[in-house]
């Protein structure tokens, strides 16, 4: 190797090293502000820039991993299934399903990372301060939410003020009645990612309260359309876990 070749290779090696050193390993968008980390950060390090800026309600913190290919596949699978149902049903269920089809197309989706997120906990207990894997993430930190959102077998998503010490069943009468929604149960999708099935009828009513900021899924009544609506409920619930709201 000539001196000239050695010199050129040295420059290439140094420059490639410099590029890899400056390429962020982890990108996190926290409340629409972008942060980059060149080495894999721990949770507390990621939370630090915003944690002390406000009185955050940590149970409502949500973490998503961006660019997970299976999410779009899952969305398409659900959309195809709804389209198939639209073709085989009559009004007014057809209209309800068509509206749901439009809504789901507009959903902002990313892979939900199920993780208990609390800045104080992360700094106290190492098990709650995991290291981020390489990739891009979206993190949402909020003050204590004041609303609860209902969606599913109802014409439009409805937001109701959170009620103190009130069971899930106490909200149901506020929702528009229709013949297609399951009147026996709802699914609380808590901001922290936990999904809780709750009985809301007199015979199965449970005192389970809704965490502020939760999404509540009103399932389709399955006796109307046999097993296909059962499958639709399952797919909607599985997809909605990854919904960014």
């Amino acid at each position: 190797m000539s001196m000239r070749q050695f010199f050129l290779l040295s420059i290439l090696w140094v420059s490639s090293g410099a590029v890899s050193a400056n390429t962020p390993l982890v990108d996190v968008t926290i409340n629409h502000q972008a942060y980059s980390f060149e080495t894999a950060p721990r949770l507390a390090e990621v939370l630090k820039p915003l944690a002390e800026q406000d009185d955050w309600y940590w149970p409502a913190t949500r973490l998503y991993r961006a660019n997970s290919p299976f999410i779009e596949q899952q969305r398409q699978q659900t959309l195809d299934f709804i389209a198939q149902l639209i073709n085989t049903t009559d009004m007014p269920l057809k209209a309800l399903l068509a509206q749901l089809h439009v809504d789901i197309k507009s959903w902002n989706l990313a892979e939900r990372v199920p993780l208990t997120i609390d800045y104080d906990l992360a700094r106290t207990v190492p098990a709650f301060n995991p290291r981020f894997e390489k990739g891009s993430y979206q993190l949402f930190i909020a003050k204590r939410p004041t609303d609860v959102h209902f969606w599913g077998a109802i014409p439009i998503t409805v937001s109701l003020p959170h009620r103190s010490a009130a069971p899930a069943s106490s909200y149901i009468t506020e929702l528009q009645q229709n013949q297609f929604k399951d009147t026996d149960r709802v699914f609380i999708m808590q901001p922290d990612g936990e999904v809780i099935e709750v009985g809301v009828q007199l015979w199965n009513k449970q005192h389970i309260e809704i965490m502020p900021g939760s999404m509540v899924f009103i399932p389709f009544a399955t006796h109307w359309f046999t097993s296909e609506l059962t499958e639709l409920n399952r797919q909607l619930l599985a997809l909605a876990v990854h919904r960014i709201y």
Binding site: P59, R144, H162, R163, S164, A165, I208, E209, I210, M211, P212
Partner: peptide, 8 residues
Amino acid sequence: DWSVGEYG
């Protein structure tokens, strides 16, 4: 708000 699921 309590961790056993009681809020407000």
